[in-house]
Computed example of a mutant assay.
Amino acid sequence: MSPNYWVVIPAAGVGKRMGSQIPKQYLPLLGKTVLEHTINIFLDYPAIQGIIVATSDEDYWWSQYFPIQHPKIMRVAGGKERCHSVLNSLVYLQTLANSEDWVLVHDAARPCLQQMDLNLLIKTLNNHSVGGLLALPVSDTLKRGSDQREVVVTVSRENLWRALTPQMFRFKKLHDALASAIRYGNYVTDEASAMEQAGYAPYLVEGHGSNIKITHPQDLAQAELFLSL
């Protein structure tokens, strides 16, 4: 039996670095919210079985922008940290997914993911026993600084990659790895970290630089540019 593909979008964050009154995933972007753009990437992708969006209990915007429940979209309660939101989503998926199904975890604030990258990720990892993630080789010179912002050392960029999303892993392996990390107080900032701690070696799939994460106000203008191309 062929595995199904599920998407998890942790969207319970408040985006403090944006300096906005509303969470960054609900900021306007070319006539829609950032989150609408992100969700539509996967709604338009036929292989995706369902999309689980983890939102805060204090999220007053979801019902405003998603008043009608789409049959492919499921909403769950998010958690304190990203890893809690993802694990909550995986617990919800336990009644729907098989152990070898694929779960693609994607940042709510990455609305510029290209379909060609999604195609490449799925095609590359389709027969992989664990999974992997979209990533970019580091091209800049890296400096490690002190608390006083003085350069301590120049870090070699050889074999260094920037982790992007989606990060795509087998359902049960990801569930167990995240549950274990959280149980031991390791609140990992991405799914690959949990898999690494569980002894796996996620595969790096080179993605496109347009797959930016909206973190600062200037990122919105850049996202508009990429989405307009």
Rank of each mutant, 00 (worst) to 15 (best):
L87S: 05
V130Q: 00
Q25P: 05
R149D: 03
S2D: 09
L120T: 11
V8C: 00
V155C: 05
A109I: 11
A223C: 07
D101H: 07
H216F: 14
A135S: 15
V7E: 05
N127F: 12
A47S: 15
F171P: 01
E36H: 01
V105S: 07
R183W: 08
I214M: 04
S85T: 01
L113W: 11
H128S: 11
F66L: 04
G199V: 12
L27R: 01
W161S: 10
T95I: 06
P28N: 09
I39G: 03
A108R: 10
Q197A: 13
P166H: 13
E150M: 12
R110L: 05
I73A: 02
A97V: 02
Y187D: 07
V76L: 03
N211C: 13
T189W: 10
L125P: 09
T189P: 01
L121V: 04
Q197M: 14
Q222N: 12
Y65I: 04
K172Q: 15
G78K: 00
V86C: 03
I68Q: 10
V105T: 10
L104I: 11
Q148N: 12
Y45R: 05
G131W: 03
Y60P: 01
W61G: 01
V91W: 06
S99W: 09
G207C: 10
A108V: 07
D107C: 13
I214L: 07
L121M: 09
Y26G: 13
V152F: 04
L118F: 15
L104F: 13
P111L: 07
L87E: 03
S2E: 13
Y184H: 10
I39M: 05
V153Q: 13
H84Y: 12
G31F: 00
D219C: 12
D44C: 05
P46T: 14
V105E: 04
P111R: 13
A198F: 08
L178K: 05
E196N: 11
H175M: 14
L93F: 00
L120C: 08
T55I: 15
A201F: 12
N40W: 00
R17L: 12
A108E: 07
P71S: 04
K80S: 07
R82D: 07
Q197K: 14
A77I: 10
N119Q: 15
I51K: 01
L90V: 02
M74C: 11
N119I: 03
A201T: 14
L125V: 06
G78W: 00
E81W: 15
I212V: 09
